[in-house]
Design a protein around this nucleic acid. Sequence first.
RNA 1: UCCGACAUAGCUCAGCUGGUAGAGCAUGUGACUGUUAAUCACAGGGUCCUUGGUUCGAGCCCAAGUGUCGGAGCCA
Length: 503
Amino acid sequence: MPDGAAARRASCLPGPTVLRRAVTTNRHDPSRRSGEPAMSETKPAWVRIENLKDHVGQTVTLKGWLANKRGSGKVQFLHLRDGSGYLQCVLGAHDVDADTFERVKHLQQEASVEVTGLVKADERAPYCQMELQANGIVIVGESRDFPIQKKGKGGGDDHDPGFLMDHRHLWMRDRRQWLILRVRATIIKAIRDYFDDHGFLLVDSPIFTANACEGTTTLFETKWFDDSTAYLSQSGQLYQEATALAFGKTYCFGPTFRAEKSKTRRHLNEFWMVEPEVAFMDMWADMDLAEDFLSTIVQKALAKHENEIAEILPSTPEEKEWMTKHLDVLRGVKAPFHRISYDDAVKQIEAIRAEKTDEEEKKLLDIHWGMDFGSPHETELTKRYDKPIMVYGFPAAVKAFYMKKDPNRPEVAMGFDVLAPEGYGEIIGGGQREDNLDLLQKEVERHQLDVSSLGWYFDLRKYGSVPHAGFGLGVERTVAWVCGLHHVRETIPFARTLDRIWP
RNA sequence: UCCGACAUAGCUCAGCUGGUAGAGCAUGUGACUGUUAAUCACAGGGUCCUUGGUUCGAGCCCAAGUGUCGGAGCCA
């Protein structure tokens, strides 16, 4: 085994078997470690495509995978993706030896290569009007019959969703998925930046818990050592109330688990949620916070990715038109949002229902005071607005036990939902918490929750209880809305749903 | 848990009132020195989800099962 084998494994380079098969040019030195500077001055630097604009006119090496390949007998156009971007590499028959050129001609989609050549601006080049005039190529790993096809003509996005999800580990190499997951990363960073910049302290809640915190949703259950049971957290909220009373303003950000057997485009059984909580804050200030927060992260995502978002969906004229409008909607996501009381929202839905003629639709939109909103209600309501709307003051009976009641109307809870426009529905749920010990204990009894596991939670009301409020934002639903996607499963690297825990 | 739709080539789909299986893409071979979903020619590729039934004959009709997708409830 060559001396460098262990080092190569450690740096995730292909093992010696692959390298032995590789066609090498005189520029290639297989013993050199990834990321290590060139041993001699003549070796070109390894550059990522996202930084290529700083290297125009220079000879560099790119390392990546073949996203696509076209060509004639004497020139090959290799569309390389290296994780940071896409670039066309042009390889002429006389730029490398005949044997190498012949092998390049037979490379298939997703073969991994190292290409060396001159970076030059060229208006004919796709992606970024730059290309690499190659004069050397090393085949690192072959690829045969890559299951996911190029876009168009029965390929790419035309695949069946089940097939794509079965191949999620490869599907994420697709340009569209690459764009979406990059937008997700930007949104996550914007979320963290917002709270970090506004005096919040990151204090994460536990994932294993002993109790059902809201008592409404189904929890994933797991064994906790020999003789007790633990549940996967469905919300960090109760713990955030403790941290907020310790640090004033806190947030937690992590995975959340719900065992409901939901099979819709808005549901995952494992999803990411950010939950801020603030001491000495009432529902109205909480709504101000949610409004400013959501506006900020949407505008940041737009500032960085507007062109990419525009590219994610559209292929038909109808989709292009929708996307143009969607980007306008996103630009308009700025405070103030529409604020509608539950009472008014019920009236609006009743009015919408009255306009419907379809009996099926009428049945789904059935509503009266006291009912929680279903998806059809939310969808119809948000379709009427081009900005997020905040619905507040829900009936206490349909909300969680910890929600504070309106002192003037005890049947109303001081909670609110933020509904994304364009029919995307609830992305934030929040409100003011019950800070009175007696009232809280009565609610716990009424919901028949396990009092013994909530002793610590009652303590928060015994020792300097204060008004406090917070909310939770679902990351995947937010990303789906911003990207204009139909389904949340594309917004998370590996979705966990009712019938899918693999790959 | 309930309701609905679908299952045919590696992938996406078509398939006549029930009569021996089709296309595009992908793959292979060949042509082409600027392709943008490259193009052109030729070729290989099938347990029509499974089981049972009806029929002279089933991809097609019937029943059950399995799987996938969508929706409801619940929620972010």
